[in-house]
Amino acid sequence: MNKADNIDNIRRLVERYYDGTATPDEVGAITDFFRRSDVDELPDDLRADAMIFTETALAKATGPVPDGLESRLDSFIDSLPEKPSRRRGLIIRLSLSAAAAVAVVFVIGLALLSRNTREQVEPSDNSLMASESILQPVDTAVTVITEPSPLPDESLAEAVAPVVKKSAPARKVKSKAVAVKEFVAAAETDEYHYAMASDVCEISDPEQASQVAAQVLGMLGRTLGMAGDAIVKSDNEANKIPTAINKIAINKKLSNEK
């Protein structure tokens, strides 16, 4: 590229610069050109630009610095932890997740206890039972032995109905204290089962039982994770409230000024 072409190219870039469309790379190219050029040899229309670009480059490279900034930064670097602590947001997230986990476990525990006390009037099995309704999302990974219903055929329809319905009348006539006593007694005599829905299956193999337990714990973990995410999301939304309020206040102030 000869000198005239080069000048024309710089002119085009300078035009883009004043149009506000030049990229930082293009601005860099103009600066480099002017820094390498002798201002007296440039066309008149580019001389002021050359001075401005040169002054700007100078301003970037050198400038006054407040006294004591270097020592302040030096001390600051000394105070930085060797192993950077985890970000505050992560700590909040973990705390919220832990709180959510405790809350969910508490609620599930209460629900199980409540169901157990309702079921204690219908003990019919002495094995570890698990509800298929709980296992449904992960049932492909678990082998569950389903025991035929011990009830006679005519009561089959009744057997598949929710267990709660059957136990409801019994609940009315039993006091809480008596129910708990019977629950404990049934558990001690191994007559109690975890009947949480109509489709109940029995797991007699301890290995399978442990697999089922692991699956249930996995589900519980995922649920807790989702609960934690939801809480963090709510927290983020809540953090936007001050910004929104501020915007409204500014708009109001502007309209009042008008």
């Binding site: 970037k60 050198t62 400038g63 610095v65 930064l73 670097i77």
Partner: peptide
């Protein structure tokens, strides 16, 4: 920490210039 101070800290003047502008 010492390496950090030797390689990063000297650029504070230029960093301040940009931040100030």
């Amino acid at each position: 920490r010492e390496e950090f101070k030797q390689s990063i800290l000297p650029h504070y003047r230029h960093m301040y210039g940009i931040a100030s502008a």
